[in-house]
Amino acid sequence: MGNKGKRRAVAALRVIILAFFLLFVILPIYWMAITSFKPHAEIINTQQVTYFPKTFTLENYKELFEIFNYGDFLKNSIILSVLTAVAVTILSVFGGYALARYRFRGKTAMLLFFLVTQMVPGILVIIPLYTAYAKMGLIADAPHLGLWIFYVITNLPFCVITMRSFFERIPYSLEEAAMVDGCSRMKSLRKIVLPVMFPGIVAVFVFAFIGAWNELIAGIIFTSEPSAWTIPVGLKSLIGKNNVKWGAMMAGGMLALLPTAIMFMVVQKYVVEGLTAGSVKE
């Protein structure tokens, strides 16, 4: 009896917690969403707060595409983020595997170095990189290449460390068994470990993707022509000296959410479905 009551209390608590988080997340997003459907005058009206657009308009979205090249921003951001995520994921698999499965000289130093890179002020990293890049004469012709390199490098340390922790959760015995069966280390990694690791790989992919997706400062420095801008740079340019294009800004923010939202929906089941679903038979 007592147990049953307790279980019910836990279930109720869980519902409350879940509801709280939903509200916590939804309220600001709701606010942005309805703002994106309001005309400018209603948005900046200081006398009355409207919780639903009095005049419903799609003008902000139209403006975004017709006047502000949002299509370009979207394309640039998607290409850059996907390529960043691909490169980071591949490099992290090797790095993470090495850190998880080997004991070797300089490992601690290496990990500390990874952490130190996270502490260097961004602008100090951008300047020499940009200078080198300018010397190669690539700024005008391939701004995204430089940005891509920057994104890959800045996302690597965290992703390698994360990948390592995913590898560590997979029992070595699994790999050993394969190697005993005559597989080479690489083959066992590819055939046995990686499939089991898939959720971890997906997670790292998402981390790197979002890292590139939301980056602002390097985007501003590396891209100059409006057609080369990424979404954050394009949105930031909606802040003028004297006014903010609130409607277009919020519309842009909402649209920027779509690709990530779709990605979340597709991949979330891998990330949380259990990293080691079929692999724990030790």
């Binding site: 602008i123 951008i126 300047i127 940009y130 200078t131 340019s237 802040i239």
Partner: peptide
């Protein structure tokens, strides 16, 4: 035609000038 968000313009020029 090149451009940059207003608030970051000075920083961008600084990086470009040093490079």
């Amino acid at each position: 035609y090149e451009s940059t968000p207003l608030e970051d313009a000075a920083n961008k020029i600084m990086v470009m000038a040093t490079s």
